[in-house]
Nucleic acid binder design. Structure first.
Lengths: 132, 132
DNA sequence: CGGAATCCTGCCTGATACTG
DNA sequence: CAGTATCAGGCAGGATTCCG
């Protein structure tokens, strides 16, 4: 997602001295897929093709703008396909591509981790936060 | 990361009608770990304990503010430990906890995916973008 | 060195209106 | 239905400065 205008400049500025992670293209891709909405959209589509409004409903909390933007980016990156069916109200369906499914499988691991270790994290927070 | 003030309200507002992903605590945790800096910090610490400046150098492009903020949050969530050694310039070391390492193993999959499929994504972008 | 505090830019959200 | 467009406001995030 486009949240890297000023940071990009810094990356380029530092790249002369440190090309470890900063200049690596895989770092840029990792930046992109480590995005909240990207993760959730990919997760949502694991159940098969879905329409715009379906995704919107499942990810309650996303604005139309960000959902559209995220879907466009993922389409551009070849992770999902956008199919327009010229019915009377037009129908638009989003579906993971082969590439998208390979990412979804990895992301499923993240989802499982979150569900599995949620209680541990909540416990850690409770002991970290000041007790009243 | 704290990027959910107004959105939280929408989540709560919609939760009455749809409690699928929105109200699930694992969704909130998934939101948090689907963060660019979180991913990169966890990845960086896979090689063992590191000092603040070491992490900062490896993640060229992160501001001190965001790095501090991210490290604090991860410490609060019990994913890493912060150790202060009272040397003359103070030395602060960050290290993954057991819980943090379990997340790191999953995230390693993301890193591998990014490195493996980077070319496919770049090719998809090239064919999506308008040809000159 | 490792932050904390400050200011400031600009993205994201939220609301609304308008196409096809 | 599935957007696109626009505008206000808030808050994330960057740059800079200062402190233990």
């Amino acid at each position: 997602m486009p949240t890297m205008t000023a940071a990009q400049k810094r990356v380029h500025a530092k790249a002369e001295f440190d090309a470890y992670l900063a200049a690596c293209p895989s770092r840029l891709l990792l930046d992109r897929i480590s995005d909240k909405w990207v993760t959730l959209v990919i997760c949502s589509l694991e159940d098969g093709p879905q329409r715009f409004s379906e995704v919107s409903r499942r990810l309650a909390g996303v604005s139309q703008k960000m959902l559209t933007q995220t879907l466009r980016t993922l389409e551009r990156d070849g992770l999902l396909t956008r199919t327009v069916t010229p019915t009377v109200p037009v129908t638009v369906t989003y579906e993971l591509t082969e590439l998208g499914r390979s990412l979804q499988e990895v992301m499923a691991g993240l989802k499982v981790w979150a569900e599995t270790h949620m209680e541990s994290v909540l416990a850690a927070r409770a002991s970290y936060d000041p007790q009243p």
